[in-house]
Design a protein around this nucleic acid. Structure first.
Lengths: 136, 136
DNA sequence: AAGAACGTTAGTACTATACTAACGTATGAC
DNA sequence: GTCATACGTTAGTATAGTACTAACGTTCTT
């Protein structure tokens, strides 16, 4: 987890998380799929994908878009940070859906190692409120 | 504390916090002072001030720049959120200066009421690691 | 052969951020 | 009294990010 956070913008983050969560088991996504899931038009999605590609987080093969190893690691970190803060908010009494949206605003801005320290501080939950595992 | 957070960008946030922390006791700031403290040129600072003015967070009188009541409330909320998360990071073992910079990245993005819930969750410290009070 | 689906290009737009160069006004030094 | 400095301001440029429409080319399927 080598200082990868803060390398992406909000929408790039959304796209990375989508690719990580949606494309389970090396099942890459198409541009139109990404666009419609993110509620944007294909040219806008293409723009985001291009930036992610130029940053080395994504690669395309025959219209299939998938995470690179580096992109996969970054996505994992972001999801770990996300679930850590989502858990914190929930433990604090914030409703689940609010907790999730708050976490989405900040998960790509916080350093992974610091988030892991926070995770310990909040009693090291093994899964987020949605039941998804928290790990690197 | 009525849903004011998320109303500003990062640099607008920096400027609000500067105005709140630097101008103690109705001692407003000049443009050049703001610019040099923020390490930007006066025209850039003017731009930020203009946006803050149009949002109703700042007003100018004879070149003196000061927070409006609404701006003052927003700054207070941001500082409360800042100190809450700074405390969280410190309690978690993150060094003080890192804790501060991480908190600065997110304090203007998080809802004040949710932050207050987090504050309770982390044992309601009355001051941040720097010794400054945490309150609304 | 026609149409749909999809990726892509080109062009526009707006916000945020930041710069330089230049200008006007005011104030203090001499 | 003039000159220089300081300061606010304007105008112009630039880049990144976000998002749109219109249009084009290719491919795949009826």
């Amino acid at each position: 987890m080598t200082e990868l956070t803060n390398a992406v913008s909000k929408r790039e983050r959304d796209c990375l998380v989508l690719l990580k969560e949606e494309s389970r088991g090396d099942f890459p996504m198409r541009l139109h799929e990404i666009a419609s899931t993110m509620h944007i038009k294909p040219p806008t999605a293409l723009n985001i994908i291009r930036r992610l590609k130029s940053k080395g987080f994504v690669e395309t093969q025959d219209g299939m878009i998938k995470l690179t190893d580096v992109g996969d690691r970054l996505s994992k970190t972001i999801l770990m940070v996300h679930r850590t803060f989502e858990s914190l908010f929930c433990q604090s009494g914030v409703p689940e859906s609010r907790a999730c949206s708050e976490a989405s605003e900040i998960d790509f801005l916080i350093n992974g190692e610091n988030a892991m320290k926070v995770l310990k501080r909040i009693d090291n939950p093994s899964s987020c409120p949605h039941g998804k595992p928290i790990r690197m």
